[in-house]
Amino acid sequence: MRIGAIEAGGTKFVCGIGNEEGIIEDSVSFPTERPEETLDRVIAYFEDKQIEAMGIGSFGPIDLDPASPTYGYVTTTPKPGWANYDFLGKLKQSFPVPYGWDTDVNAAAFGEAKWGAAQGLDSCVYYTIGTGVGVGIYAEGRLVHGLVHPEGGHVPVRRHPEDTFQGICPFHGDCLEGMAAGPALEARWKVKGHELPEGHEAWEMEAYYIAGAVTGAILMLSPKKVILGGGVMQQAQLFGLIRDQVKYNLNGYVSSEVLLNHLDSYIVPPGLGNRAGLIGALALGAESLRQR
């Protein structure tokens, strides 16, 4: 089967085609501009691909309620032109096929559960820490939406005792995204994250905030795998720091051999690498065919 996949990010779109086995056969990427010109490029890419279904993992917030009159819309994003935009409806005009539609991080979580680091498990939590912070949740064999969808990047965080930074989130100031996203690193330390040396104090502080969020996810959701992706997590030294801080935070409370002695195989990078979002969108498309 030929399935279309779209990883729709706030910075760039990645479009691809693949099959129900998770194999991407071709892909293209381009910057996220205003919706009309961006989706014109999307349509141009797919128009000769003869796709049988489409999966979309989109930046948000988005409307995931099929009963809602704005199902398929991007809703309250500050991204210019995209607020209250009918993303899914625009594509349906050109491609009358089954669609899988979800957040970009839920798509990544789904891809990891199907073919990545959480393959064979019925639950995982996927954090992306980059330009923003997002959370995808796969629990008991299905993606979690709830009232709207998870927005774990905006949970309040316990402040590091040596941190006086006020945070950059325009809605919440010092939430997880406001304190730990890539732009927060740059605003706090006055250089881009990749320019900071490995032993810089920034990384211990970054790990403190991410570990706090991961600890909360473990206590609330008890996932069988925690996957940390996104540009900030390209700093490989963060994984050890985060695992150590999570172990300290839990303090032996949760009686699990994995949490006590095997965090190195529990808190991990994406098995699908930087293609987790695109392959996850492919999984959404394949699932839409299965449900049909």
Rank of each mutant, 00 (worst) to 15 (best):
H149L: 07
Y73W: 14
E37T: 13
K114N: 08
C124P: 00
K114E: 09
F46L: 12
P66K: 15
I43N: 08
G57E: 02
G57I: 02
K79W: 07
N106A: 08
D86L: 05
P150E: 01
I56S: 10
I56L: 14
G55A: 05
V105H: 09
I51H: 09
V105S: 13
Y127S: 04
A44P: 00
Y126D: 00
F59V: 04
G89C: 13
G72W: 03
V74F: 02
H149C: 05
G57V: 03
Q50S: 15
W115V: 08
H172R: 12
D48Y: 11
K92C: 08
P80H: 07
A109V: 08
D65N: 15
F110P: 00
S68I: 14
G153W: 00
G141E: 07
I168F: 02
Y85C: 05
L91V: 01
T77Q: 05
G173I: 00
Q93G: 15
E47M: 11
F110H: 05
D65M: 12
G116S: 06
G111E: 06
G141I: 09
Y71V: 11
P98S: 07
F87L: 15
N84I: 03
K49E: 14
N106H: 03
I43Y: 05
K49I: 09
P98T: 05
D163S: 14
D122S: 12
T77C: 04
G57R: 04
G111Q: 10
V155P: 00
L88E: 02
V135S: 13
Q119T: 11
A139C: 08
D174E: 13
Q93L: 15
